[in-house]
Write a protein that binds this DNA or RNA. Sequence first.
DNA 1: CATGTCTCTGTGAGCGTTCACAGTAGAGAA
DNA 2: TTCTCTACTGTGAACGCTCACAGAGACATG
Lengths: 343, 343
Amino acid sequence: MTMSNAGARRKAPTIHDVAREAGVSRGTVSRVLNGGHYVSPAAREAVDAAIKSTGYVVNRHARSLITGRSDSVGFLLTEPQERFFEDPNFNVLLRGCTQALAAYDIPLLLMLAGTQDERRRITRYITAGHVDGVLLVSSHSGDPVAEELRAAGVPLVACGKPIGHASKVSYVAADDRDGARDMVRYLHQSGRRRIATVTGPLDTPGGVDRLAGYREVLAELGIAPDDRLIEHGDYSRAGGEAAAERLLAAAPDLDAVFVASDLMAQGVLSALHRAGRRVPEDVAIGGFDDSPAALASSPELTTIRQPWDRIATEMVRVLLAQIGGEDPAAVILPTELIERRST
Amino acid sequence: MTMSNAGARRKAPTIHDVAREAGVSRGTVSRVLNGGHYVSPAAREAVDAAIKSTGYVVNRHARSLITGRSDSVGFLLTEPQERFFEDPNFNVLLRGCTQALAAYDIPLLLMLAGTQDERRRITRYITAGHVDGVLLVSSHSGDPVAEELRAAGVPLVACGKPIGHASKVSYVAADDRDGARDMVRYLHQSGRRRIATVTGPLDTPGGVDRLAGYREVLAELGIAPDDRLIEHGDYSRAGGEAAAERLLAAAPDLDAVFVASDLMAQGVLSALHRAGRRVPEDVAIGGFDDSPAALASSPELTTIRQPWDRIATEMVRVLLAQIGGEDPAAVILPTELIERRST
DNA sequence: CATGTCTCTGTGAGCGTTCACAGTAGAGAA
DNA sequence: TTCTCTACTGTGAACGCTCACAGAGACATG
């Protein structure tokens, strides 16, 4: 039984204890801990053994104190939180980032900055150097926190293209425009001719780009633009429902709707159902996001999948690169059309 | 313009700078920072002014190094993560905990321990003292991580009653049994006489207690137990669907089903629909959780709401108390019946 | 043999804070 | 006056680590 002092919780072993146990100096132990350069094989072995036998774990506070790094990053949500926390995509993103960071042994600090007060507190916390970088989630433009952090020189990667920021800030985003193009083209190919759309909020890049994709394809197909076929939503179920009602009133002959989010598509589905339109027989519905909502709907939604896991991985990669001194970068990832029963 | 050195990111002011600026010693500044006892009003004022003028923010690493505390807590998820991250209740919980902690200026570290490797890494991290306490989310019993942390003396609060742990571990949970009782009593009061149930997994406290509540009420009503009316699910949509099919086969005369989760209730709804039973006319459905799934179903589900926001608040309160030296505690919170269209 | 280069090792200093302790000044009591 | 007590203040010494530096061999080069 090598229980030694397990469960004692008396005093954690320090680098000094390891050094003594291994018969080397603190410096050598430290070198082993940090990559092991300029360490003889014998010394490294002795240190590794000593680490194991003492159960040594590096004290991050001591390390951070001297290095100035914290070896942690923040996941910052500056939205009114309800919206995002309700969004299943958000969870995939959060999980993906946590996992990607875990691979580097970097803990993720979850920060919510819904109110003005919280924003101030968190900005202070971040600029004080308590995290090495920030993964920023905030769909709306003109986020003051982003600008403040950028100005303070904090490494920063946004999820989605931050609009309104002329300045250089890294971001990772799905190709919204291309996804929208795919969906509209697909609806047209399956024989639909009066294709309407429910957009997202137009102060979000996703809202803008998905609408742009819709318009582009119609133009390329030589279909004249028709404003009656365009209604705006707010990414919520209720918003989708209301928009669908307006569409039905303005353009009762529509035979397809490209909806800029699955959640809104659920609302559209309800409205159509109430209006007595069958899906997909009378009206085809194309969603966006491939959220669980797409599967929970009946019929299940044909939709555009955003590669949230890859987005998470890329955000972490870009952030770590930036922490390592590289320049900001933008990454655009392709989407995928998922065919289900609503078209 | 009092820009002073804003945006410089050169060198953060230390307690020393503040002391010099205020014309006092480090010790006095430190005392102001930590409650301000034994500090003259004049000194305190000078220090406060100096803090403001220098933009000083305490260096948590230095503080943690000497105090041994980290002033942060972990939010640990030991489940296979998909299940939980899909669960909207989880999000409310996570958000609630983050916010409750923010009120104490304590950051939350999100930790996912899905695989064996991750579990080891994270246990190491935690027992090394890098967090002061852990909020544990893990529905299944016999969680080795929980036991390890408890043994290591790490303050710990579980979400939901940990079964299989004879040992003293704090937890906060909704009153599952009472919620189930409410629902079954309600179904009976609305005239249903053949009330079936789809249970959760019986290795979860929720599964066990909700079933117990169901049985109790029937017994109290003098209704003889009938095993054909009880089927087991796994909290998944598909599981609910399968269970409902078995129920319909074994007890075709059922006129109500108490389903131990909304997600399963969705599956039950599908199965009933396929079998040509109308809800609520032929069969009443009672769910549990009041998750968004309850609203996404048609008809919308009558269900039992768990007070997730209060659960979060209480978990944080109990954890902080425990970090402060208090003994473990169990908190049971009342549920609420939400009446909708499925009954 | 002197010199340089390369790998490896130990040592002292210091990161920014808190804590224990010693010390000061003023008030009140003897 | 002198002593004690209280309220306040300053000072070293940690905390556990990394980093810069110096130095020791080993080996090659001139």
